[in-house]
Design a protein around this nucleic acid. Sequence first.
DNA 1: ATGTAC
Length: 503
Amino acid sequence: MSNVTFDADGITLEQVREYVWEIPQEGDMRAPARVLASEALLEEIKEDKTLEQITNTTHLPGMTTNAICMPDGHQGYGFPVGGVGALDAEHGCISPGAVGYDINCGVRMMRTNLTYDELKGQEEELVDALFANIPSGLGGGGVVEAGVDTVDEILARGVDWALENGHAVEDDLLHCEDEGMREGADPEKVSQKAKDRGKNQIGSLGSGNHFLEVQRVTDIFDTEVGEAFGLEEDQIVVLIHCGSRGLGHQTCNDYLRKIEQQHQGLLDQLPDKELAAAPAGSQLAEDYYGAMNAAINFAWVNRQLIMHRTRQVFERVFDRSWESMEMELLYDVAHNIAKKETHTVGVGPEGRPVRDGEAVEREERELYVHRKGATRAFPAGHPEVPKAYRDVGQPVIIPGSMGAGNYVLRGGENSMDLTFGSTAHGAGRLMSRTQAKNEFWGGDVQDELEEQEQIYVKAQSGATVAEEAPGVYKDVDEVVRVSDELGIGDKVARTFPVCNIKG
DNA sequence: ATGTAC
C-alpha cells in the first residue's frame, strides 16, 4: 500500500497502486471495499452515494476478498451500478439489489460486411425503417406477442426457443454466454404477474438508456484480436442494449418483498434495507436464483428477436439477403446478473473465503458473483469463453453515450485476480435523469448530433433523449483507459454512432 | 431500469 490517500468528503481511500483504491475494513465490514479508478474519475464518483454504497455492500454475509467498484461506478438501488460482489455460495447470500431491477440488462454486437461508404446517404431511410419495425418505448408491443405458455418456454430455454421458432440461427447461440440458455432457470419461480407483464414485450427495446445503434468501426487497437472478432476499420456494426423489461423488474420487486418478509433478521444486520439478501442455502435463495436465471433467458431472447428483426430491416433497405451482408452475432454480454462461478480465493482457518490479509491458503470456492453494471471479462484460455474466442479472451462490449462512441475490449489476463473476471459496462452516469431533463432539451440534442456529428437519432420521447444526452455521462475513453491499464479488459476496437433508435 | 408508487 502506498501512502497516497484520496479524501472523498468523510471517506478516505488508500491507494494500493495506480488505479486501485481501498476503503479499509473496519467495524462490521466483512472485507475492504475497492474502487478501480483514476483520480479524475474518483472526483466524479465521490459526488453521489457510490462510495458509501460500495462500503455498505461489504456488510453482506460471505463477501469475499473485497467488494469492487468499477471506473464507471455510480449510485444505484442499494448496490452501486458498476459494482462487483462475490459472495460465498455456501455460507453467504444472494441479493436482488446487487443484480439490479433490470435482470440481464446487456449488450450484443452484430457484425456486417458493409462499409460506412456503402451506407452513407441512406442513414435517414435506415433509421426510419428501424424505428418503424423495432418496438420501443414504455409499455407493451413486441416482435412476438404470446401467451403465458410461450413465456414459460422462453424462460426455460432461452435462445433455443428462438432457434426453434425461426428467430435465430445456430451460429447465434454459439456467440452468446451460456449459448443463450442459462442453466438453473425455473419458470415456476417467476410470478404470474411478471409473466403477464412480459408476454407482450418479447422483442422490445424499452426506454431509458436502452437503444439500438448502427455504428462504424473507427479504430482497431489490436489487429490480431480485432481479426479474431471479425472487426476492421470502416465496417458497419449494430449494437443492441436492452434487458428483461417489465418481467425482470417485477421479478426483482417480488423477491425484494419476499426477503423482507422472510429474512428480517439478516436485513436488520445490514446498513441499508435496499441490500436485502437471502441466505445461501435457504429456499428463497434457491427460488430467486431460479427466477433470476429464467429472467436472464427472457432478456437473451429479447435481444435475439431485436437482432433478427434488424437483419430483416437491413434486407429491405439494402435489397440483399442478411446472409450476404454477413450479419453475424459477434457476442452478447450480460451486465446485470449474479452467477454461481468457481474462483480461486483466500481461505481462512475455518475453511471459508476471507479477505487477503486473513487467508491461510488459496482454494477454489463456489461464489455468487454479482455483477451489477459490470461485464464478465474472462481472459484467454478460460473454459467458459466460447470456442471462437478461447485463444484471445471473451469480447467485452462497452457502450458509451450517443455522441461519444463505444468500445470492444477482450477479457484481460489480470481480471481473475483483480475483479473476479469483470470489468466496466459503460460510461456511467454523471447526473440523475431529473437533473438531465433540466439541463438538456431532447430536440436540441438531436439537432446537434445530426449537424455536428452526422448521427441520426430517432426516439419515442424527447425527454428520453435529454436524459441520455452525451453530457450526462462520464468520459468513456477514460473508463476504458483504466480497464486497459489494469489489464482487466484490453482495448480492441472503437466504434462511432451512425443511426440510433431509442424509447 | 420500470404500466416512473402499492
